[in-house]
Structures are given as C-alpha cells and as structure tokens.
C-alpha cells in the first residue's frame, strides 16, 4: 500500500503541474471567436485578441497584394468593422467573400489584424479550364 500512496502523491504533483501549465497556457492562447455583430456589441471579446468573422464589404476596399496590406470593411448583419490588415493577402480575398480576421482593436477604432483567412466554402467549385486560365493570366497581368 506504501507504493500506492507514493503513486498517488506522484500523480498529484504531476496533475498539479499540468493544471498550472494548462491554466497559464489558456491565458496565453485564449482567443475569442465571434462574428462582427457580437464583436461590435461590446462583449467580453472587445478589447482582447479575437477572431472575427464577417463578409468583406464592397466600399472602401484598399487592396495591395505586393505591399502586403488590405484595408476594408468587415460587414455583419447589423454592424460594420473597419479592418487594417498587414500580411500576405489570400488569393481568394475579394469583396463579398466570407473572411476571418484575427487581431485586436486599435485606439482609433480600427481593427488591426495580422491574420486573414478566407473561408473556403467551395474547394471544388469547378469553373472549367478556360475560366481558370483567364483568371491566372489576369492576375499575372
């Protein structure tokens, strides 16, 4: 029975250590995942690092792929969030697309994003070779 007690004590120490790591780890990895409306409604997510999803608005879209930046409106059903993104812009990024941005709200009310993902609802949308080549050629031109 002595060994059982030792096992329990050893196990308890490891569980405590893991628990400590897990709690502090949750703090450093914690990211809210909300839509634009929830985010702008001043919930717990506002002011902290968050992933926000919405649709890219058609107005005031400033895109510069080579300079690795994009400024655009992220639109929800009732509200809009201005996003300033720096980084590689995904190929599929365009107005009307569902996207997810990750970052934090700046003092000027603009959301500073360092992650921009296009939600890929249709990986297999076939559009025929001609359309494909045209698009590739266009993006090269």
């Amino acid at each position: 029975m002595r060994s059982i007690r030792k096992q329990i004590i050893g196990g308890a120490i490891i569980i405590a250590a893991v628990g400590y790591l897990a709690v502090t780890g949750l703090g450093s990895g914690w990211v809210y995942y909300v839509d634009v409306d929830q985010y702008t409604a001043q919930t717990a997510a506002t002011g902290r690092r968050a992933r926000v999803f919405g649709v890219v608005g058609g107005n005031a879209l400033e895109l510069n792929r080579a300079n690795l930046s994009a400024r655009f409106d992220l639109v929800g059903s009732t509200s809009t969030l201005r996003v300033d993104y720096h980084g590689a812009v995904p190929e599929l990024f365009q107005s009307g697309r569902q996207v997810v941005v990750e970052g934090q709200l700046g003092a000027d009310g603009v959301f500073n994003a360092d992650v921009l993902l296009t939600k890929c609802s249709s990986k297999y949308e076939g559009h025929g070779r001609a359309a494909r080549e045209a698009r590739a050629a266009e993006s090269l031109r």
């Binding site: 790591l21 450093s28 914690w30």
Partner: peptide
Amino acid sequence: TAVSVGPGFYNRV
C-alpha cells in the same frame, strides 16, 4: 461567446 485556444496554449502546456 466561443473561445478557441491557439498554438500558445499547446506550446505552453
């Protein structure tokens, strides 16, 4: 609201 944990959590734990 849903919260996800990023790589920071795994790297730490």
